[in-house]
Design a protein around this nucleic acid. Structure first.
Lengths: 244, 244
DNA sequence: CGAGAAATTGAGTCTCTTCAAACCCCGTGG
DNA sequence: CCACGGGGTTTGAAGAGACTCAATTTCTCG
């Protein structure tokens, strides 16, 4: 698996958000550092740090998270291949959360100076960056509304989002195991619910034959049914082309 | 109360986020439309719409919110004077939530074309816009972590944030009634909790003599105590100058 | 095959919700 | 100047949902 195939995914992701010119695309790829790898349970970016570079996910699943004073971990968002996880730090300078791996991850960097140059030289690319961060906000909003909804809907929603985002970059298809191996504890931390309760809710989704588990991975058996339970509408992901 | 005094607040807000040059400041003010007013309970921007302009709050309290399929309203964020509530729509085009008033509000607009021109002509101003939207994201993250915390801490946190954000633009001081007259139902919708439970929690904060109510408004009696209960740390608001 | 991690299950407890009723503040009109 | 009305607040009580604790099973990988 060559570097090209890795790189491509960033363009797939960004183009799904906002159309880029060939010139912008190649300038962007030129700015990427060599890929790095990190195993599960490590920090890519530490809370409170002031990184000098931005991270681009190439493979694996990571998350934004905060450790709370009471010792609990709260996951704010999942990060999938193609995501630029910390444009955040380019704009806000100091991280107010961390980025951690949930599986083995590969990723590359773009220095903040380079981001700055690209943004000013190519305002359209700058817009794509901005838009990418706003889609993150939109996702955060969608998660936030969860607290007013039934737990089973929230859990189903989670799977819908994971599938939709992976599908967007060509990393998932229906009735195939999702390339997403977070634990139920991770899901619990993302939803702010207890592991036990998540487990029982996932069991309900299985009993309804909406999803199943094969080994470590999850399979979506009934996409329409799952969306219906979740009340899932992918507009909030702001793809340029809609999803089936 | 002249238009100048109104306008000034936008600069106060943006400068608290990112330093602007005089030229940028005047270009920004030139772009503002004449102010409009709307009473409580009205929409400034409708969900699903594609506005051609951005709203700048001048006075009053508004909120981002979504109506959920189950008929509940979920408030995603409060909007205070100086906030540019829907840069959101400039970037994402289609709103995936609405902006509504929680009190009588005054506000002005800047057309999206103008935003585009300003962003490209003054990259530093463009950065300030971007940064402003990222602070919104940071706030959304802070709210999101709430679901893993005790209710009394979350409610206290809410008052801390409201005070800090109003204080930033010179609209609040301690031991004076906050210029914020949302109802407890509004708070409940923001926290995703029931009105009854909010009420009982607010009662606890009063019993601890951290806050009090004078007429419709809330007064902060013990700022340190309130922050301690809330676990409030204002870094997430990303002010350039810290708060006492 | 064994060790460790993750998933599952059951039981008791506490939080939060819902329902319902009463109260209070404040502006309006007689 | 006081009665009335409406929105917002306060209070009580019962039930549902979610949490913790704790034990067991299943899976994965060396």
């Amino acid at each position: 698996m060559g570097a090209d195939e890795f790189m491509h995914i960033l363009l797939r992701k960004l183009n799904a958000i906002h159309q880029l010119t060939d010139e912008e695309q190649s300038a962007l790829l030129d700015a990427l550092s060599a890929p790095r790898e990190l195993g599960r349970g490590r920090d890519i970016v530490a809370d409170g740090s002031t990184p000098g570079q931005t991270t681009v996910m190439l493979s694996g699943t990571a998350c934004r998270y905060k450790m709370l004073p009471n010792g609990k971990r709260h996951i704010l968002a999942f990060q999938f291949p193609g995501d630029m996880t910390d444009l955040y730090s380019y704009v806000l300078k100091r991280m107010d959360h961390a980025i951690g791996t949930l599986s083995t991850c590969t990723f590359a960097h773009i220095s903040h100076e380079k981001v700055q140059d690209l943004r000013i030289q190519f305002p359209n690319l700058g817009f794509a960056f901005w838009r990418d961060t706003m889609v993150d906000t939109s996702i955060a909003h969608a998660w936030a509304t969860g607290s007013s909804r039934k737990t089973i809907a929230r859990v189903a929603y989670m799977f819908c989002e994971i599938y939709a985002r992976l599908e967007r970059v060509g990393k998932a298809e229906l009735e195939r195991p999702l390339d997403f191996n977070a634990t139920q504890q991770d899901l619990a931390d993302a939803l702010g619910l207890s592991l036990v309760h998540i487990n029982k809710t996932v069991a309900q989704l299985k009993k309804k034959e909406l999803i199943a588990r094969t080994g470590t991975k999850v399979v979506i058996l009934n996409w329409e049914g799952l969306q219906a339970v979740a009340g899932f509408d992918p507009v909030y992901l702001h793809f340029r082309n809609t999803l089936g």
